[in-house]
Design a protein around this nucleic acid. Structure first.
Lengths: 190, 190
DNA sequence: TGCATCTGCCTAAAGCCTTTAGGCAAACGG
DNA sequence: CCGTTTGCCTAAAGGCTTTAGGCAGATGCA
C-alpha cells in the first residue's frame, strides 16, 4: 500500500537529533519521530530497539560530533590557544544543538560508554595539558577540573543562569578561560 | 469508604523527593506517588496542579534544603575554610540525595526562580568571595566559575564519570578546591 | 446532639505514549 | 518470473496524565 519510506537506524537517529534540538531532548519520543516520517509508530521498532535505545543513539551521535569538532579545533594548536579552542567547541556545540548536548549528558552503561567517543574526549583533554607542566596525579585532577568547568558552565548558561545579568556570558567565559590558563601554569603542589 | 489519608502538598512533595532519591528524578510520576500513598491517581490532583508542578515542588524543596545547609556551613567561616565547607555542602547533598539534586537542575521559569532559594545560593557564593580580593566585574566572573565547577564536578561524579579510575573522586575534589583557592588569591587581571 | 456544608478521595473516561504480535505487499535475488 | 526477504501496517494491551462529576466522612454551627 504505502510506498516504502526507507527508514534506517541512521536516518532515525539523525532526525531524532534534529527533533531534540527543536523541542528538547526529553520531548523526543518514538511517536513524534513516527509522525515526522509520516509512518506508523510500530514501524520504527524494526529499526530501533525501544525508546531508550533511540535516546542512546542520539547521545552517541552527539559525542561523536563533538569529538570530531574538538579534534579539528585542536589540530595545530597548543597551550592556551588549544585550551580556548577546545572549550569553545563545547560551548558552541551546546548553543547550536541544545537537544543533542542534553543527550550527551545521558548516563550510558559502562560498556556503551567505553565504546563511545567519550574516550576520545578524555584523551584530547589530556593532550591539551601537554602544553602545561603537570605530572600525575595532578594531571588527572586538572583533567577532571577542566571537564567540570566546561560542562558546568555550558549547562548553567544553557539553563539560562547567566542571561539578563551583566556582564554577559561571553565575557565571563573569556575571563574564566584566562583564569584557567593561569591556574594550569601555576598549579599548586600538595 | 476508604478512610482519609491526609494528603497535603507538603506531604506529597516530601514523599516525591524521597521517591526521586530512590528511583531517580525522571521516574517520579503522579501515578507512582499515588501508589505510594495507596490512593487513586486522580486524588493527587486536588493537591498538586499537575506532573510538572510536582517536579517543580521537589526542585524548590531541594534548593531550600541546600541553601539551609550552606548557610549553616558558612557560619563563622571565611576564606578557604568557607570555600571548602560550601563546596562540600553541594557534593554531600548530591551524594545523599541524587534525585533531589537532579530536581534542583530543573529549569524554572524566571518568576519561580526569582522567588526560590536560588537567590540565597548566589548571595552566599558572593559572600565567600569576600575572603578574597576581587572587585567587579571579576567577582561576578568568579561567582560563575565557582558555580560551574561545583555543579559540573558534582554532575560528572554523580553520572559515574570518575568511578573506577585512580585517583579517587575525593582526592581530586580536594585538590581542585586547593587549586580554586589559589586561583582566587591570584586572579589574573585583564 | 443534630444538621448542613465542605473537603477529600473515588469512579469514569479520554488522550497520548510504549511495546509486542502477526499480516501483507513491495523489493530483491536467482 | 517467482520465491524469499524485508518493511511498513493493523491490532491490541498496558501505563501515565488530566478533567469531570459523585459520595461520604469530617467540620462547624446551633
Amino acid at each position: 500500500m504505502a510506498a516504502r519510506v526507507g527508514l534506517t537506524p541512521e536516518r532515525l537517529t539523525q532526525a531524532a537529533a534534529e527533533l531534540a534540538d527543536e523541542v528538547g531532548f526529553d520531548q523526543v519520543t518514538v511517536s513524534a519521530l513516527a509522525r515526522h516520517f509520516d509512518v506508523k509508530v510500530a514501524s520504527l521498532y524494526s529499526h530501533v530497539k525501544n525508546s531508550q535505545d533511540l535516546r542512546t543513539r542520539i547521545a552517541l551521535l552527539a559525542l561523536e560530533e563533538m569529538a570530531d569538532r574538538a579534534a579539528d579545533a585542536l589540530a595545530g594548536r597548543a597551550g592556551k590557544d588549544a585550551l580556548t579552542a577546545f572549550a569553545d567547541v563545547y560551548r558552541d556545540y551546546a548553543r547550536e544543538h541544545p537537544g543533542r548536548y542534553a543527550a550527551a549528558q545521558l548516563r550510558l552503561d559502562p560498556e556503551t560508554a567505553a565504546a563511545s567517543a567519550g574516550v576520545r574526549h578524555a584523551a584530547m583533554t589530556r593532550a591539551i595539558l601537554r602544553g602545561y607542566d603537570l605530572t600525575e596525579p595532578d594531571q588527572t585532577h586538572a583533567v577532571r577540573m577542566l571537564g567540570s568547568v566546561f560542562h558546568g558552565y555550558v549547562s548553567l548558561e544553557l539553563a539560562g543562569g547567566f542571561s539578563h545579568s551583566a556582564p554577559d556570558a561571553q565575557e565571563s567565559w573569556s575571563r574564566i578561560l584566562d583564569a584557567l590558563d593561569a591556574l594550569l601554569h601555576n598549579w599548586p603542589t600538595a
